[in-house]
Design a protein around this nucleic acid. Sequence first.
DNA 1: TTGTAGGCGTTATCAA
DNA 2: TTGATAACGCCTACAA
Lengths: 326, 326
Amino acid sequence: MATIKDVANHAGVSVATVSRVINDTGYVHENTRQKVDEAIRQLNYSPNEVARSLFKRKSKLIGLLLPDITNPYFPELARGVEDRMQESSYRLIFGNSDEDEHKERDYIQTFVQNNVVGVISSTNDPNADTYMKLKIPVVFLDRTSNDMPSVYADGREGGRIAAQQILARGSRNVTIQQGPKHVRPAQDRYQGALEILEQSGTPYQVVQTSSFSYEQAGVSAKELFQKYPDTDGVIASNDIAAVAVLHEALRLGRQVPDELQIIGFDDIPLSSLVYPTLSTIHQPAYEMGREAAGLLIEIMENGYALHNNIQMPVSFIQRDTTRKVD
Amino acid sequence: MATIKDVANHAGVSVATVSRVINDTGYVHENTRQKVDEAIRQLNYSPNEVARSLFKRKSKLIGLLLPDITNPYFPELARGVEDRMQESSYRLIFGNSDEDEHKERDYIQTFVQNNVVGVISSTNDPNADTYMKLKIPVVFLDRTSNDMPSVYADGREGGRIAAQQILARGSRNVTIQQGPKHVRPAQDRYQGALEILEQSGTPYQVVQTSSFSYEQAGVSAKELFQKYPDTDGVIASNDIAAVAVLHEALRLGRQVPDELQIIGFDDIPLSSLVYPTLSTIHQPAYEMGREAAGLLIEIMENGYALHNNIQMPVSFIQRDTTRKVD
DNA sequence: TTGTAGGCGTTATCAA
DNA sequence: TTGATAACGCCTACAA
């Protein structure tokens, strides 16, 4: 690879001059600028980001930490982040944390070792030392933290909507899946649904789901119907769980949505591809990713942001696991 | 952040000595080693990878370029790569190419600018200059190139199996989706299926699908049934396309699998979650990712690999869009 | 308008 | 066994 020195030699100028033209900083005569540009072209030179990063103590790299890209909710987020970052010519160092504190710390550490200028993370513990001590800006994505910048959906409202809709459509014996206790957004949804159900005075029951994996979802679905065979409405903890419930219901011969309604959460692409298609609460995942990236960029470039906590709206998507009502 | 100099001062030794202990290179007295370790611990020092990278002209970073992480096939691949890389403490700079030559070149360039030591790419054009001229090792993933290292599934065989199975299960008027012309693995499958169909002498027809997006898949599915309403077996270009065909068939009131059989390709998680569940050709995506990472590591560390072209086996997964035959 | 030189944090060479 | 020091490629005073 050609270095700035090569370019300087080739153009018959000093490295300082070359640096000036590539960074468009300070004075440089039009003629010499052209000579330099020509040399750059001929040598196919492009600056070494590593050297730059070392000198400036900052790179064009940002760290992105997601629980598991294999979970269909996260690719959308990731893509939103990437698209926005790429527009401002930042690049992503990417890692899966598996919600494992240790792996998370590990990644954060190598992020800083590589001079990343910011990080976006979906962690379960935004208040962990790992983040509090960081000297570079962090934005939490799909997670909430009071004192730190974050972008998240209005989970509580989502839970409320789910409960309202399922009630409005006639379910009278609702089962709510609580979702993993350590995942904040899951608990928000749960609380929101609870709130409405309590108010309404209709009977309901709660079941736990401990993780968001496919296998776990299947197990939880079976348990649900064993414990509460008479339930006529399920507010699932997310779409994966909802699909598992749906399949178990079909297997048991329950009529969906006539005997049993199901509402999911997230609106992952899968939701409109299952049969019957899944009614769910839509989270604007791609936009959330973009917003998080935008927020981080704002903070990185201005030192602060106008709005540090961005809550995104959710909405009910009526499909075929709930009854029609117009 | 503490630097090696801080550590040296703190421990009362020279930076050279500190460097020796952190890299475990050259002689260093047990006592001084302990002093240094202690200083490192106290200052919470960890080496600046950027400075290292500058000096050594190589980093612990590798570039990963995928068409679109939002397409459900790729997260598995990415995860496989990440897991293997992480075991050898490499980190990933990740980008979506959107199969756009320009974006691809852009990414590759910044990879190089950041001193990545290797790249893994799912490109449609492995022979492009961009790759041929690269001075660092490249492994193509889910793509084939004769002269360059690559990891891919046996698409041709997959196509054959799909055709054999659908024939063996009684379809007599098969429609094959050809898949995007510029995507090599799609064409391999197509050729494989064609081969068997030709041999068998049963009537068949071919339809085009131009992209792998959800929307396109829906459109193609509609077209398929408009043109060939009598088809009794579809070999789809991938699982997304297959699901679209499945839904269109259901919408048209076709009995699946009794009147119409469908076979997909990829075996993405979705396949077992649709209803009826999708029979498909399984590609070991996660393992392919791991293999690609392993191959790249081998090349990076030894300068060459024993086997540069790794072809992974595919298999038929019988689910509910094909008739049982035992 | 241009060039010289020092320094960013490491590692490796060489001498002590 | 240890320490000074040059070098990796770049940028920015400062001097000319």
